[in-house]
Design a protein around this nucleic acid. Structure first.
Lengths: 218, 218
DNA sequence: TCCAAGAAACAGACTTGATTGTTTGTAAAA
DNA sequence: TTTTACAAACAATCAAGTCTGTTTCTTGGA
């Protein structure tokens, strides 16, 4: 796909296999879970040998950690991109809640649930992740402070609402595991929350943007 | 401890070792995590042989599943006990939120985080848990419908607030993993939430009950 | 420009350690 | 004496790390 021609620089080869391995790792974390994600399975899913994996990553923990960091970095970039357009067009709080749900429901928090226990019990693993998580939250902050400024609300208060939103969504996705196949439940709860948030940021709706995003059907 | 005398019935012996094994399993799930909880470790922590474990439980999955179910059942019993006194004395919504936080922060949701990934990827394991989880939620319902009736609020609306509370707390405890040592953060968020819930149940505070429960310091 | 070392990227076999389920043996209660 | 509760050795599996070998690219001098 990428290298159609025969001759590729080592940097290109290296970068591609790294990416393939990392993508395969995220896929496996999501589809089969951390405990079922062995280095052999990763190599197989990436279409490379196990030797290639050990060449690029020091060990299992290293490739897991790198993959999670890559996923978080991507989410952070997306977040900043969203913040830009959001600020430019003066979006509503509903939009933010919808975006956060979409983002978290699109594998992000499912994968997070996989590695959280490991992060809890493995200090090295946790320490390596915390900076990336901080960056992610900085991205969130950019959006919410914009909303707060526009609504004339204390940034600290906006931050509480932001964090509550994140916690709520985390909890909702956690619940999908033992309460599956109930999209209406999650839709209604998100609707309730959007209404609560609206009350915290009393802004006149600038235009009727299409915020009819549905909570994913699980 | 339990059996000081020498001669005990087989039923007694059996029940005690079972309990010891289950308690040890919960302890290990909480302290070291699911992946680090081997059957040998469980037996060692329970002070019995691995043979005893295999005699009482069909395998690793069985003892994990039984232990989690036991933990949930205990939480459900506690919930019903709380509901009784809560209804009797006409407690406030703040009390409920505090109780839920306490309960979830007292190992319940930390252990839950350990097995959620397994439940997500292992249909048998999940299927065995769902009924117990349902009972647990029925216990919650008892409390919130009492509050709703007293406040003259739609039970369905109370249920949404209840579920949102559970989700929020789940998300908060999830976050403690990658945002540790910040008790003020969790305290403030819980305070914010209590205020939100209060607005949903407009009741005159019957008496100044002592609701100054602190969010656990993590 | 071409051609050798040399280095980097990859492939695959091998070793070791841990863990699970199984099985056989023993003590205690029915 | 028969069954139940427990103990401990055993066998098989599996995954992670290590190591050795092969291919592909890079580099520097003729």
């Amino acid at each position: 796909m990428t290298g159609t021609g025969k001759r590729r620089s080592q940097k290109e080869r290296s970068a591609e296999t790294s990416t393939r391995l990392i993508n395969a790792t995220i896929d496996l974390l999501h589809d089969r879970g951390l405990v079922r994600t062995s280095t052999s399975e990763i190599a197989r899913a990436a279409g490379v040998s196990r030797g290639a994996l050990t060449h690029h990553f020091a060990g299992r923990e290293a490739i897991i950690s790198a993959s999670v960091a890559a996923m978080l970095s991507k989410a952070t970039r997306d977040l900043h991109r969203f913040a830009e357009t959001f600020i430019a067009r003066g979006g509503s709080s509903d939009e933010i809640v919808d975006y956060i749900w979409q983002m978290m429901d699109d594998r992000l928090f499912y994968v997070t649930m996989e590695y959280l226990p490991e992060a809890r019990h493995n200090p090295d693993f946790r320490a390596e992740l915390i900076p990336t998580v901080r960056d992610f939250h900085a991205g969130l902050d950019a959006i919410w402070t914009a909303l707060a400024t526009r609504a004339g609300v204390e940034p600290d208060h906006a931050r509480i609402v932001m964090n509550a939103t994140m916690c709520l969504v985390r909890g909702m996705i956690s619940q999908t595991v033992l309460r599956p196949n109930d999209p209406a439940y999650y839709r209604d709860m998100l609707a309730f929350w959007k209404q609560q948030v609206r009350q915290q940021f009393p802004i006149e709706a600038p235009s009727s943007h299409d915020s009819r995003l549905k909570a994913g059907a699980r």
